[in-house]
Design a protein around this nucleic acid. Structure first.
Length: 576
DNA sequence: GCCGTTTTCGGCCCGACTGTTTTCAGTCG
């Protein structure tokens, strides 16, 4: 899979072309950026697309025409790309690392290379220390300081954080701004509103008749560690959480347009704006305008989409994955909501590596308003988690039976286990024991570095055993830490469909596995999904919102998810 | 370099903020 590599090369071509002075060059830059984005976010392997359909198939992709298709094909065939190699000889610069430094883009980097020979972060660091940069025309002392700070931040690993770390901070800031009296309204926008699995910055929109006061209040909050910039209507700050946060003050009549604009995604907005232009409008963050600048009455997102002949759609869908066309056809599907979820299908207790008792977990489930939840402790092979054998499970389940009687249906505990799928695809508990269990959840935890074929056979073998009802965290990824294991998901989906096994959308924030795009791919099969938090303590049961967010990003309908069923139907489904 | 329900030529999203300028270029989202 060379998608990432090729996308990066196309992106670098765009950077290097941006100093080209030909009048058409800046449009070439945009073309290469767009092509890089297309290939970078592609599900299928570019190499396979080319193998199957040649350059013609590449040209089917949005933003890829004859020229770029040729370059991509050249690279796939020969491992070389003339256009890239030529430019790179001219500018042998480590763009990837250097553009990650705040305030440095292609033009300044190429000047730094031409005038000071700076090729990488080390060169840059030395030049800053020797105060060579402040002497350059157009740079000055402030720029040099900013670059110095930027290097430090880049080295500290500024970057993305989990949605579960970002969204609550954004919500807390919104709450405090609202309570301060400096604003009439504040909302979270950006990728956090779209429920992306990780966020690189937070966006907050504020409606205020005292913009200066609102900006000052935000700048002084506890959550803020330093101010990047502060103007009359926009402030950017680094948060202690490790990301930046933009707060913007918006005029009331622009609120809908601003919310639409700043929710993004950028690609979604580009598509929406193209439609606006075609219909004779101009759309920006201030509103919808007729040609000549006459504003169109459209104070909410719904009205803006409606004026463009589109249906409103949930923010989670706005990723330029076909939702714009559906909205035009008025065929936006109904997708699952948090309120649809009637129980949690994956939880642990302190009998293994959880922190709480089954009683405490039941208490929490009732507080949330669940009708049921599955207790799914680890099995014996997972020593580090003190996994349980058949005997321990038997004792534990007796306790659960007693508790279920006491609870008298207020919440029903489903007896299950997160059964290890061993190296050879066999399961970590006796066949007979598994057959009698209400909810066996299969999971791979060990020997993750198997080759693709062996891993695929291992998981498909477990699915074909007919003993498990749910496949937990099907790809094994850990966000910001561990890649998915090598596995042929199509064969896994196929086996899940064949055996009527639900695929888990693990809602633990560092997993979110299946991912949004995996869910879209799996949806094409006739199979069900299951939402579970993998809770290891009571508070983790609240992670369900992130799993639901991921399901929504995968356009999943409530009737494709087993735990939207009421209890009787759910038990029937499990017993099949 | 890409693209087309006005087009195979002539367009391509656009505004805020900063720094170093003295009217604007670069960066960012």
């Amino acid at each position: 899979m060379k998608n990432k590599e090729i996308a990066e090369m196309l992106g670098e071509i765009a950077l290097m072309l941006s100093v080209d002075t030909r009048p058409t060059a800046r449009f070439e830059v945009r073309a290469y950026q767009k092509a890089a984005l297309t290939i970078g976010t592609l599900q299928e392997d570019v190499g396979e697309i080319f193998a199957k359909g040649g350059e013609r198939a590449l040209m089917e992709l949005p933003g890829i025409g004859k020229g770029i298709a040729g370059s991509v094909a050249e690279y796939i065939k020969t491992g070389k790309m003339k256009k890239y190699d030529g430019l790179k000889r001219q500018y042998p610069i480590d763009f990837k690392a250097l553009t990650a430094i705040e305030g440095l883009g292609a033009k300044r980097l190429i000047r730094l290379y031409n005038e000071l020979g700076i090729k990488d972060v080390d060169d840059l660091s030395r030049a800053v220390k020797a105060h060579k940069i402040e002497k350059l025309e157009g740079f000055g002392r402030r720029s040099e300081e900013q670059i110095g700070k930027g290097i430090e931040l880049a080295e500290k690993g500024r970057g993305r954080i989990l949605i579960s770390e970002g969204l609550p901070v954004a919500e807390a800031i919104v709450k405090r701004i609202m309570e301060s009296g400096a604003a009439e309204m504040a909302v979270v926008a950006g990728s956090a509103r779209r429920m992306r699995e990780t966020v690189g910055d937070l966006d907050i929109l504020v409606l205020s008749s005292k913009p200066g006061k609102a900006m000052d209040f935000f700048a002084g909050l506890d959550e803020v560690s330093s101010i990047v910039m502060k103007g009359p209507t926009k402030t950017t700050a680094w948060l202690k959480a490790g990301v930046t946060c933009d707060v913007r003050v918006i005029a009331p009549e622009s609120f809908g347009a601003a919310l639409q604009y700043f929710t993004g995604s950028r690609d979604h907005n580009v598509q929406v704006r193209t439609i606006a232009v075609r219909k004779g409008y101009k759309l920006n963050e201030y509103g919808l305008f007729r040609e000549g600048g006459r504003p169109v009455e459209a104070g909410s997102e719904e009205e803006i989409y409606a004026k463009l002949g589109m249906q409103w759609m949930p923010p989670e869908m706005r990723e330029a994955r076909g939702e714009v066309g559906l909205a035009q056809a008025k065929r936006i599907p109904k997708i699952v909501e948090l309120e649809d979820i009637k129980g949690d299908m994956h939880t642990h207790t302190r009998e293994t590596d959880g922190a709480n008792t089954i009683e405490e977990m039941a208490e929490e489930a009732m507080k949330i308003g669940y009708r049921y939840f599955a207790t799914t402790n680890h099995t014996k092979s997972l020593f580090i988690a003190r996994g349980m054998d058949e005997k321990k499970f038997t004792g534990f389940f007796k306790n659960v039976d007693r508790l279920n009687e006491q609870l008298d249906g207020k919440v029903r505990i489903i007896k299950g286990a997160e059964v290890d799928i061993l190296k050879d695809g066999s399961l970590d508990l006796d066949k007979k024991f598994l057959e009698e269990m209400e909810c066996a959840v299969g999971a791979v935890h060990q020997s993750l570095r198997m080759d693709r074929e062996s891993m695929t056979k291992r998981i498909v073998g477990a699915l074909d055993s007919g003993l498990i009802r749910i496949l937990a965290h099907p790809t094994g990824r850990e966000l910001l830490w561990r890649e998915p294991y090598a596995v042929d998901l199509d064969r896994v989906f196929d086996a899940a469909e064949r055996n009527n096994v639900a695929l888990e959308i693990n809602s633990y924030p560092s997993r979110l596995d299946l991912s949004d795009t995996n869910i879209m791919a799996a949806s094409k099969y006739k199979l069900m999904f299951s939402l579970g938090t993998d809770a290891h303590r009571t508070s983790h049961m609240r992670f369900m919102r992130y799993g639901v967010g991921t399901a929504r990003r995968g356009w999943l309908a409530p009737d494709r998810i087993i735990n939207t069923m009421d209890m009787a139907r759910m038990l029937r489904w499990l017993s099949r």
